[in-house]
């Protein structure tokens, strides 16, 4: 564990808490892509199957359980509890266009051709693009509430911090995982445009509004 990874995990947890609280307090999931949240729940389920086979640390187990539980709670809030406020007219990204190619890629490029390893790889590839339905929804409506922007910023920062963690581990521990690094790079790059808008607009107190 190094500082970048810890900060990355904390910013990941913060993003999830921001989103859950926003939906819970306002009883509304307007502006939130249920499809992205379904993809994240899929990502954690596929990746953390090793909860039952491998023990790494109490921290690791605790965080995995939290990620799985909160991702399902978020999906439940969007599709059941606050269904009436769900923006399904704008949440129209076709997730099969993300699931199928990442699954095929995971079958082709992986560390080892076993069920656990292919599913882990699939979760890594899928996570890298899972935010696309959310970014698509924001671009379709042309704006995002500040709280949604804070959520996206925290979530984008998480993989960005992991990149620093991988850089650190490469030099300090002689450890690297190319699949995670390349997918993490893709994931972080997808947020760049949003980061720019967040820093130039939201942090100056303005609403995130896309140019017409």
């Amino acid at each position: 564990m190094n500082i970048f990874r810890l900060l990355g995990d904390l910013s990941h947890i913060l993003a999830i808490i921001i989103l859950l609280l926003k939906i819970w307090k306002t009883r509304s999931c307007a502006g939130i892509s249920g499809k992205s949240q379904i993809l994240f729940a899929t990502v954690y389920t596929m990746r953390y199957l090793d909860l039952v086979t491998t023990y790494i640390s109490a921290y690791n187990t605790f965080m995995k359980v939290i990620f799985i539980a909160t991702s399902y709670a978020t999906v439940f809030l969007i599709y059941v509890k606050c269904k009436a406020t769900y923006d399904h007219n704008h949440d129209t990204f076709r997730i099969e266009f993300l699931i199928l190619p990442t699954l095929v890629l995971a079958l082709l490029i992986n560390h080892e051709f076993t069920i656990m390893e292919v599913l882990w790889t699939f979760s890594i590839y899928l996570e890298s693009v899972a935010i696309l339905p959310q970014l698509f929804l924001v671009s379709k409506t042309g704006e995002a509430e500040s709280i949604t922007s804070h959520y996206l910023f925290a979530l984008g920062s998480y993989r960005g911090l992991y990149l620093l963690n991988w850089l650190y581990r490469f030099y300090a521990e002689d450890h690297y995982d190319l699949i995670a690094i390349i997918a993490g790079l893709v994931q972080t790059v997808l947020y760049c445009d949003f980061f720019y808008l967040y820093i130039t607009k939201v942090l100056k107190g303005k609403k995130l509004q896309l140019p017409a």
Binding site: H12, I56, M63, H175
Partner: peptide, 10 residues
């Protein structure tokens, strides 16, 4: 270079 047989990250 260490080839990890488990994934220790989240």
């Amino acid at each position: 270079v260490e080839i990890a047989d488990t994934h220790d990250e989240l």
